[in-house]
Simulated assay, not measured.
Amino acid sequence: MVQQLAGSSLINPVDIDDDLYSGHIRSNPMTIAAGTYARGDVLEIDTATDKLSALVTAAKAFAIMPFTLTLAADQLLAVYTDGDFNEEVVGLNGVALAPTKTALSGRGINLRKWGAAPDAA
């Protein structure tokens, strides 16, 4: 099943069967730096340029990438800026989970571990 990116007019279908998010999400168009990204990567913001790029510093964590793509140049794209996301699916680029969760929660993005039913005894 595919759906259009929430809150976006982009005509780029997104596979929603990957457990990346749950419930209501929001997106916002932001400038993404040239580079290669995977769906679910956490992005950080450069506050001097308002440009997003791959996560390097947990305190700068800002958004979640909705697409897998390579950008040859900076581009304006809708990214996830609010909602509940599966901490076991997001890409942290080697950055520690705990401080990244803290930074994102202050911006409306909650990283959570999806619950699993216990095995029947």
Rank of each mutant, 00 (worst) to 15 (best):
A96T: 11
V2L: 04
D18H: 10
A48M: 04
A73H: 11
S22D: 06
I64K: 07
R39C: 08
A38I: 02
A61E: 07
S105I: 15
D18E: 12
S27Y: 01
W114M: 10
N28F: 00
T81W: 05
N110M: 10
G23E: 03
A103H: 02
N28W: 02
G106L: 13
T68C: 05
A116M: 11
D74M: 09
L111I: 12
G108D: 15
V89C: 11
S53F: 04
W114T: 05
S9A: 07
G108Q: 15
I45L: 07
A34S: 08
T31H: 00
E88L: 09
V79F: 11
L10D: 13
T31C: 00
T100W: 10
E88T: 11
A120L: 09
I25R: 04
G83V: 06
Y21Q: 02
A72Q: 14
D82L: 08
T68N: 05
G83I: 07
A34K: 08
A48Q: 07
G40Y: 08
L111D: 12
W114R: 14
V79D: 13
G35K: 12
P118H: 04
A116T: 05
A116E: 09
S8C: 03
E87R: 15
L43Q: 05
L10C: 06
G115T: 03
A72R: 10
Q75Y: 09
I32M: 06
Y80S: 06
D119C: 03
I45P: 01
A6E: 11
L43N: 08
K51A: 05
E87V: 08
A63F: 04
A48G: 01
K101G: 14
A96P: 07
